[in-house]
Design a protein around this nucleic acid. Structure first.
Lengths: 160, 160
DNA sequence: CTGAGTGCAAAGTTTTTGCAGCCTC
DNA sequence: GAGGCTGCAAAAACTTTGCACTCAG
């Protein structure tokens, strides 16, 4: 189990991918490397935890001069390319986190129901379950989405 | 594994609770049994699968004369009372399904990514995982949300 | 009778879309 | 230079809220 860096906690679970490596992935798929996209990828690589669209837009700051609609479009593109994983953490709206090259993003999260802090859980033992479900149901390409919720130690103490 | 009744499939996984039993639960909590609430509960008990707010509102029909805002308010109430479970199935917005008395709602779903049909999965083996996570992380009241996605047999055939 | 609950209307959020101009390739 | 991408604006989709009236208990 690893905690997230950033406001929430500390210690990155994954090595931070260099920005040029990320833009290279865009180019490889014949997508253009633009200012907004570069800025968005940079925000994502510097915050290794699920970020909401609005958070990304805010973190971009006024300098990036990037429209909210552009963030939505970029995240849809990146999701489609598998560069980013969409996570639904119960709060309103989706969150996104960067995926490493070849990372299928099959880790899961532990979310505090009080303060929304997010921890990442390391292992995923559900591949065999998926196979069993696929066999029993006839479904193909079975994947899953799994999130844990609870009250974090900080929110359990009286003065949170 | 059980499939859902209704448009999707057939065979109810749970016995259908009588309407008076449901309204009794309302009264027991000192909530009023009104026309709209009764109609909403009746819709829920007759469709044993996750329903979206809009679906519920539509299924109520013009006769019920129930406002969409009232459905939202009712679902929040019922969720708070534990009579209903909120499910996020990837489509936009939440879905809800009726919970039996004493049912904690810990079953999960298999959703077709093509047509959105939903099947219910019977068992949940994650309680021990939850306990382990709680021990390792210090989180309290750990619960989880788990959904499987895939392409159902019907959507795999050429003429779906 | 009393206040919880409702309909209606309006506003708040989140996400998508159309379009003209810009800038990457 | 061509077309993918962007900002801006508007709208669509989803959800909440304020208020006066109604009706369940």
């Amino acid at each position: 189990m690893t905690s997230h860096p950033d406001e929430s906690c500390c210690g990155s679970p994954h090595p931070i991918a260099p920005l040029p490596e990320l833009t290279a992935r865009l180019r490889r798929e014949a997508r253009r490397v633009t200012g907004p996209r570069e800025a968005i990828l940079d925000v994502l690589r510097r915050h290794a935890r699920p970020l909401r669209i609005k958070e990304i837009h805010t973190l971009l700051g006024a300098g990036a001069n990037c429209d909210l609609a552009t963030v939505y479009r970029a995240m849809r593109l990146l999701e489609g390319m598998g560069m980013v994983k969409r996570v639904e953490l119960g709060r309103r709206g989706s969150s996104f986190e960067l995926l490493g090259e070849g990372d299928d993003g099959h880790h899961h999260h532990l979310v505090c129901t009080e303060c929304d802090r997010v921890m990442e859980l390391d292992s995923c033992l559900l591949e065999t379950v998926e196979k069993g479900i696929s066999l029993a149901s006839g479904f193909k390409k079975v994947t899953h989405r799994l999130e844990f919720f609870g009250i974090c130690p900080r929110c359990q103490s009286p003065a949170s």
